[in-house]
Design a protein around this nucleic acid. Structure first.
Length: 659
RNA sequence: GCCGCAGUAGCUCAGUGGUAGAGCGCACCCUUGGUAAGGGUGAGGUCGGGAGUUCAAUCCUCCCCUGCGGCACCA
């Protein structure tokens, strides 16, 4: 048998027989390590303790101390243990796949009856039995044909399909614990007892399409979370509970920002408080866009289908549009019988996007290359008939306003405009408190228009632009629009759901369809490119994220109510009103609370309402012409002169771009 | 759109085959209280909508609407 050299993390080397397993290596080092070992990293790959090592290798043995590997294995083993538990309880359930995900795992099952919450308890109990049995985990590499036959014989059609999807050069690995067997690429723990029996919890059930394909059957998915011990699990559950308190739907109600109701699903009724945030943000964006070289426009909401046919939306996007049919013979009071007999029906659609209208603006009058890049911006109210299941608070709605913009430019201006936009966006996100965001670069999809050369050119331009501004990004191959590649900018909500906010898309198609052109230096008409871009994305979604990010404690300039002046005794009422007037005169959103309540009560209520400043006034303040300031989130109060607090508030209430 | 769960007072929720309850909030009264809930009294509900079963439905069944958690979607 040939010898190989193993190199350990500390640099030590060992000569061993080829084919040795990490389990043997660990046991050779010490009996206790042999028992504690969970997996290994061999030449950078996460390795099962049972897999043989055939050549020279760098090796590190992992124990439960190694969080990354430990958690992955725990969660992965739990997926299998859960699948086994389910099949032991309901033998006719078909198993599919169960990957590790976020803080846990899920597993999809094919079962006629959906799982109930009571079922989850039963499954958990069975899982604990399996863990306590400390069944040894065993693995073998099987021949593809044998594996296929096995799954055909045992009636596991999903496994057969998975087998057929495993690339030819990958080994087909089978895993067992007890009598239960599963196809899995591994690695796994040594025995089921290495999984912490009190470190996991099955959280919820949901439907999920097989292979994520909505033409395939819907399976029953069970989600679980898992950690190394009960304490870590508890901490996680507590964190989720806390995060749920930041839910914008809950805070929106508590802070009286907006509501929604069933007569207008997916549309927001903004209350005065919420609308204050909205308009502050809009004013801010308007200033930023002016400085950024955009020309603001405004275009119609209800537009004849002819334009949507010309733009291609009628064909490709009709199912997502609100269609409005109007009988124009209703026009006027005149009862002209002949007019009534004619067909006056006109079909319009509420605009789902602003781009075709912006091309109409561009198309008015002749444009010269000297006009390019021409940047049009609109706070464009759009209506999209989103699938009912997609709606989510104010994050995913059917009526929303984009901070939309379209840049008409030449091909060689794309890269500069892209870099310029990323900087523009990054600066705004930073000013709004988001230092971190994710950029996804989506490249050419299978179904697309345009030549390979033009895709090469444009993709390159975007990539160079991101690199030029020094940003990280992740590549999403094949995710671009049919007409061009795009960058999407993502932010995260309170419980870690990721939302697309900004976007930047290159589009040579729409100018072509809608006949946009400019006169180039050669005196001929040329097609401009059109760059679709949005910074916040939609005001609705962005405000939702702002609320969750700040847990409702918005920066003073965005806070709907910036100051409440609360009277401690009613003899201070007049003074409170005077203070409010002084604050208002300084441009601060202030109100008085003169109710017949104790100061404790008022402090509590306005704290819960997330008012950044409470100024309490009793007789002492009246006499000294001061206020007792209490900042949201702080217990300490501070006595300040009126002038002092006004100056301070004016500073904090100034939007970040005006400081 | 698909799978599951839910819808009772403004909010959070309890409840029953014989037309409903709590806490908070709201109104009024007492209280003038110094930094996270002072006390009393009172008003407030077509039990999401429709159909069915039943002597009788908020409760059981069916359909629809809306919401929630996922999945799919988000040119």
């Amino acid at each position: 048998m040939s010898q190989i050299t193993l190199t350990f993390p500390d640099g030590n080397q060992r000569q061993v027989d080829a084919g040795i397993t990490p389990a043997q290596v660990a046991s050779d080092i010490s009996t206790s390590l042999g028992k504690k070992a969970i997996s290994a990293t061999v030449n950078g790959a996460h390795y099962d303790l049972q897999w043989p090592i055939e050549g020279d290798a760098e090796i590190a043995i992992h124990t439960m101390q190694d969080d990354e590997q430990a958690l992955e294995l725990i969660r992965h083993d739990l997926a299998h243990i859960m699948a086994r538990a389910v099949q032991e309880i309901w033998p006719d359930v078909k198993v599919t796949i169960g990957p590790v995900r976020d803080h846990g795992w899920f597993y999809d099952f094919d079962r006629a009856e959906p799982f109930t919450p009571e079922d989850l308890g039963q499954i958990e109990a069975k899982m604990k039995e399996i863990i306590n049995a400390r069944d040894t985990v065993r693995t073998e590499v099987w021949d593809r044909a044998r594996a296929r036959k096995h799954y055909e014989d045992t009636g596991e059609p999903y496994k057969v399909e998975l087998l057929d999807r495993i690339p030819g050069d990958e080994p087909i690995r089978m895993y067992w614990h007890g009598d239960w067997q599963d196809l899995c690429r591994g690695p796994h723990l040594q025995h089921t007892g290495q999984v912490p029996a009190d470190g996991f919890k099955l959280t919820h059930v949901a439907g999920a399409y097989w292979l994520g394909d909505n033409t395939r059957p819907m399976l029953q998915r069970i989600y679980g979370v898992a950690f190394k011990d009960r304490k870590a699990l508890k901490a996680h559950l507590l964190m989720i509970e806390e995060a749920e308190k930041r839910d914008h739907r809950k805070l929106g109600r508590e802070m009286d920002l907006f509501h929604m109701q069933e007569e207008a699903p997916g549309q927001v009724f903004w209350h005065p408080n919420g609308w204050t945030i909205y308009t502050e943000l809009q004013d801010y964006m308007r200033r930023k866009q002016r400085k950024g070289g955009y020309n603001e426009v405004n275009t119609p909401q209800v537009v004849d289908r002819k334009l949507w046919e010309a733009s291609g939306h009628w064909e490709k996007y009709q199912h997502h549009m609100f269609i409005v049919e109007v009988d124009e013979s209703r026009d006027g009071e005149n009862d002209d019988a002949a007019a009534k007999n004619r067909d006056h029906t006109r079909i319009n659609a509420l605009k789902p996007m602003n781009c075709p209208c912006h091309v109409q603006v561009f198309n008015q009058g002749l444009k010269s290359y000297r006009d390019l890049p021409l940047r049009l911006a609109e706070f464009g109210s759009c209506a999209r008939f989103e699938p009912s299941g997609a709606l989510h608070g104010i994050m995913r709605v059917r009526g929303f306003t984009q901070d939309d913009g379209h840049i008409f430019c030449t091909e060689d201006q794309i890269q500069t405009e892209c870099a310029r936009f990323i900087d523009f966006l990054a600066n705004i996100y930073a000013e709004l408190g988001f230092e971190k965001f994710e950029i996804k670069f989506a490249t050419r999809p299978e179904k697309r228009v345009g030549t390979e050369e033009s895709w090469d050119y444009v993709e390159n331009a975007l990539e160079n632009a991101i690199k030029a501004v020094g940003r990280d990004y992740t590549l999403e191959p094949g995710d671009g629009a049919f007409y061009g590649p795009k960058l999407d900018f993502y932010l995260t909500d309170a419980i870690g759901r990721v939302w697309q906010c900004g976007t930047f898309q290159v589009d040579p198609n729409l100018p072509e369809r809608l006949g946009a052109s400019y006169i180039a230096p050669d005196g001929e008409k040329h097609r401009p490119y059109m760059l679709h871009r949005a910074t916040l994305g939609s005001f609705e979604r962005f405000i939702g994220i702002l609320i969750e990010e700040h847990a409702g404690k918005l920066p003073v300039w965005l806070a709907p109510r910036q100051v409440v002046v609360a009277a401690i005794v009613s003899d201070a009422d007049d003074y409170c009103l005077e203070v409010v007037e002084a604050l208002k005169a300084a441009g601060i959103r202030a109100e008085a609370d003169l109710r017949n309540e104790k100061i404790n009560y008022k402090v509590r209520e306005h704290s819960v309402g997330k008012v950044p400043y409470i100024l309490a006034c009793g007789m002492k303040e009246v006499e000294d012409r001061t206020v007792s300031t209490r900042r949201l989130g702080e217990k300490q109060t501070k006595v300040q002169s009126l002038d002092e607090i006004i100056a301070q508030l004016k500073g904090e209430a100034t939007p970040p771009d005006l400081r």
